[in-house]
Design a protein around this nucleic acid. Structure first.
Lengths: 120, 120
DNA sequence: ATCTGTGGTATCCGATCGGATACCCAAGGA
DNA sequence: TCCTTGGGTATCCGATCGGATACCACAGAT
């Protein structure tokens, strides 16, 4: 006997899927970390680089440019010598913080529960 | 004049970074969607496939296997003909829901704010 | 006897991603 | 005079990702 078809009792299918909208912003490598570190206030390029040692300048630049283009961060060049550049979360960017925070919280709980996650 | 060094006033550097712990679980393509659809209760392979039309069987299989290995979902084969397979979130898997929900919420807010996110 | 549905697997392939490395300019300091 | 610093850019490259497509076994329905 084969199974009867079952109706969709899952949450209804998001149309212009909010999941994709959000993950398209925070999906890049190191993006959540960058936003996390910016949540503490303005931060300069090399500071971020130091905050996230494994990131390369190339990728950090790329992420920051993407985030700037999406209106998540502001880029502000200061007329020092050598010039320094300060990045800040915009109001829109701060909208992301609850999600980042939730991801951090869950990550923490997973670690506490000893989830056997092989690091990739 | 160059800038003085600034101390790290950001949230302190997570050691075994919870961000990475969590994103290593939910980071794969379609993974958040899969978890989202499983949050409504057990769901079979073809149901999930129907829930997420763009996903291919290959990727769906891969994701489900990964999630199973990580203890996020249970896979239960039912002795019907043809055999059907039911996937369920484990307790550990349900831990992820707040993060998924937060991502959905933020995505919704971003859409409402008319964020200019070019779909990739 | 053949068709259908389920839950996949096997293979191929191009795109993208991101790490490594080298290089750049201009001003200030040693 | 040369070195260092900040904030990058240019190029190269291998790994991975994931889409497309084809195929499969088996039982029940027609």
């Amino acid at each position: 006997m084969s199974l009867r078809k079952r109706k969709n009792h899952s949450p209804k299918p998001p149309q212009d899927c909010p999941l994709l909208t959000c993950t398209s912003v925070i999906g890049g490598a190191w993006t959540p970390s960058i936003i996390w570190y910016l949540s503490g206030g303005p931060r300069r390029f090399t500071e971020l680089k130091g905050d996230i040692p494994p990131i390369t300048a190339r990728v950090l630049t790329k992420r920051l440019r993407e985030l700037e283009e999406q209106g998540i961060v502001d880029r502000h060049v200061m007329p020092t010598s050598p010039p320094s550049v300060e990045y800040t979360l915009t109001d829109l960017g701060r909208e992301l913080l609850p999600a980042i925070q939730a991801i951090v919280d869950v990550g923490t709980r997973l670690q506490a529960l000893g989830a056997q996650d092989a690091p990739r």
